[in-house]
Structure formats: structure tokens, C-alpha cells
Amino acid sequence: MITLTRLNGKTFTLNAIYIEQIEAFPDTTITLTNGKKFVVRESVEDVVVLVKNFYKHISIIGLPRDLEGLEDEK
């Protein structure tokens, strides 16, 4: 899950697995796989970093940073 900020300043948590695309119109708009859209204060680049970190945390891409190097010790 990633925490984002709506344009009105309220934060919410989004399951990043359901993100289909992220665009700037110029506000950052996130479209989910079900077609629902969210407009957020964070930049496209910031959202991409949050998503990548989430994927790493749940081990979809690479190992979590705190576990890197431990694989070699096994």
C-alpha cells in the first residue's frame, strides 16, 4: 500500500497493485485497473518511487533492501 495526498490535502492509502497508469494533466492522475481515477498532489516521479518501493517491500521486484546480501549467506 502507498500513502498519497488528494488535492484537498487529505491523505489516503492505495493498493499500488491495481495501478494501471500514472499521468500528469498537469495534476498527477492515477488510473486503476477498474477505471477509477485519483488526482493527487504527488508528482508522477514521486508516485513511481512509492510504487517501486512497495513492490520491493512485498518482493515483487528484487529483495527488500534490508535483506540484500543475505541471500549469499545461505
Rank of each mutant, 00 (worst) to 15 (best):
D66F: 06
G62Q: 06
V51G: 12
L70Y: 00
L63S: 11
F38Q: 08
T5A: 09
L67C: 07
G62E: 09
K52L: 15
L32T: 00
L14S: 07
G69C: 12
D27R: 05
H57T: 04
K56W: 01
R41Y: 01
G69A: 06
R65P: 15
K36Q: 08
S59G: 15
Y55K: 13
L4H: 02
M1I: 04
E45I: 04
N53F: 02
L50W: 00
R41I: 02
V47R: 03
Y18N: 06
R65I: 03
K10S: 15
R65V: 07
I17W: 01
N15G: 09
K36E: 12
Y55F: 15
L7G: 06
T13Y: 02
P26N: 09
S43L: 10
S59Q: 15
N8P: 15
V40I: 07
N15K: 09
F38D: 08
I2W: 03
E23Y: 00
D66Y: 04
T28Y: 03
V51L: 13
L14N: 07
K36F: 05
H57A: 15
T5Y: 04
E73R: 07
K52V: 11
T13M: 13
T31Y: 03
L14H: 03
V51D: 08
T33W: 01
L7W: 01
T28I: 08
